[in-house]
Design a protein around this nucleic acid. Structure first.
Length: 109
DNA sequence: CTCGTGACTCCCG
DNA sequence: TCGGGAGCCACGA
């Protein structure tokens, strides 16, 4: 296995594994990418990703189960995409991880 | 090499 | 309940 790939590539690879109708936190993504504690870089990686159109970035939310994006910069888009996949939000526009939280098997990586 | 920035997360009061 | 602050690291210039 090579780890020569950039952090961004690794993050993208993990995000692509998120099944439809499920969501994951940045911290979770970072941990699966082999970089626990670097949740911040995950968000940056997704933002800087040129292949974001090929990545279900909308399935990534913060540890509160809410969208981190500002309303004027994709919030509504992510919200709509998640809803189109069957994800439901409560009155606070937050997602219940008990229902939509993604938990990858240890065999995934 | 250093500096600034950021779609995060946790601890405290 | 709610907000502020600090720590973390990657990338570009």
């Amino acid at each position: 296995m090579k780890k020569a790939i950039n952090f961004r590539e690794q993050v993208c690879a993990v995000v692509r594994k998120i099944p439809r109708g499920r969501v994951a936190t940045y911290g979770q993504i970072a941990a699966m990418a082999g970089a626990p504690g670097r949740a911040r870089q995950v968000g940056w990686a997704l933002h800087g990703s040129s292949e974001k159109e090929d990545i279900p970035w909308h399935r990534v939310v913060n540890y509160k189960g809410k969208i981190s994006l500002p309303k004027h910069n994709g919030y509504e888009v992510q919200l709509a995409l998640l809803k189109s996949e069957g994800v439901r939000f409560d009155e606070q526009e937050s997602i219940s991880f008990d229902v939509f939280g993604w938990q990858a098997n240890a065999k995934e990586l």
